[in-house]
Design a protein around this nucleic acid. Structure first.
Lengths: 132, 132
DNA sequence: TCAATGATGTCATAAAACATAACATCATTG
DNA sequence: CAATGATGTTATGTTTTATGACATCATTGA
């Protein structure tokens, strides 16, 4: 999936392509940029370069405008969304490391047990075991 | 899936984007066009416009060149491939219409049976009926 | 070997696309 | 009604692209 993410964030589309893909005018697209709703990269010759993710974002902006939001409102929505996104990733990370710990623990115990059958009530460090 | 096909054949990418996406020079891309290996659309202002399918095709061309084929060879490969594609579709179509016939026949019989067990050899103009 | 061919590079020129900034328009709202 | 927000329009300068001509360099067939 990392491959796909990369493609989607590859900034290669000039503003003309973006216009066709979003049905927005260049004026609108640049204005949204001036309002910090989107931040395209630049080519060597200073041309704006957009990614597929940028396209998605512009379409999202269009939707919000249709819903009656103004630039400030959309900006808020985006920063809020980003916050949630970060929190989600953080939680995901945490749970993953917890899982790692569990896995490590499991392997450790497995090694200690020497692959013998688990006996309950042996002196203290009785290894847990899961049938694979 | 029709949606995706549409997107993939949407010609919106100018040659500069194609260069970045394929690592080919403009000279090469235009040359392959002059050799009938690819046929991009044109904008109102006569700029070449490529689709994602075109990108794929150009990458394919690159591969064939790496394999030692020349333009004529690649052209042959493509026309051959197209032939096979057409035959495949034809066969697919045929099988589909056969399937349609079967389905229609089945519905017909079902209707004639009036949801009773299908009895062969009844003459019966039994009224049609659809559940719900 | 040598000339022909194939693939690509490079250069020149004109046209199209783009960037930026300034001013115009038009609706909404305090 | 004046201020603000969103977008259109116009002007000017830069970058990209199209096309055609000529250059280079490797391969190949006679």
């Amino acid at each position: 999936m990392k491959e796909k993410e990369l493609r989607r964030s590859l900034a290669v589309l000039p503003i003309g392509t973006v216009m066709k893909l979003t049905n927005l005018t260049a004026r609108q697209i640049r204005y949204y940029e001036s309002q910090d709703l989107i931040k395209p990269e630049r080519s060597d010759g200073n041309r704006r370069l957009y990614s597929l993710n940028d396209i998605d974002r512009l379409l999202e902006i269009k939707d919000y405008i249709d819903d009656g939001l103004n630039m400030a409102g959309i900006r808020k929505v985006f920063t809020q969304k980003q916050l949630e996104q970060e929190q989600f990733k953080e939680r995901l990370n945490k749970s993953l490391t917890d899982d790692d710990v569990r896995k490590i623990l499991h392997d450790e115990l497995l090694r200690q047990s020497g692959f013998r059958q688990v006996k309950l009530l042996t002196n203290s460090q009785t290894p847990l075991q899961k049938p694979f």
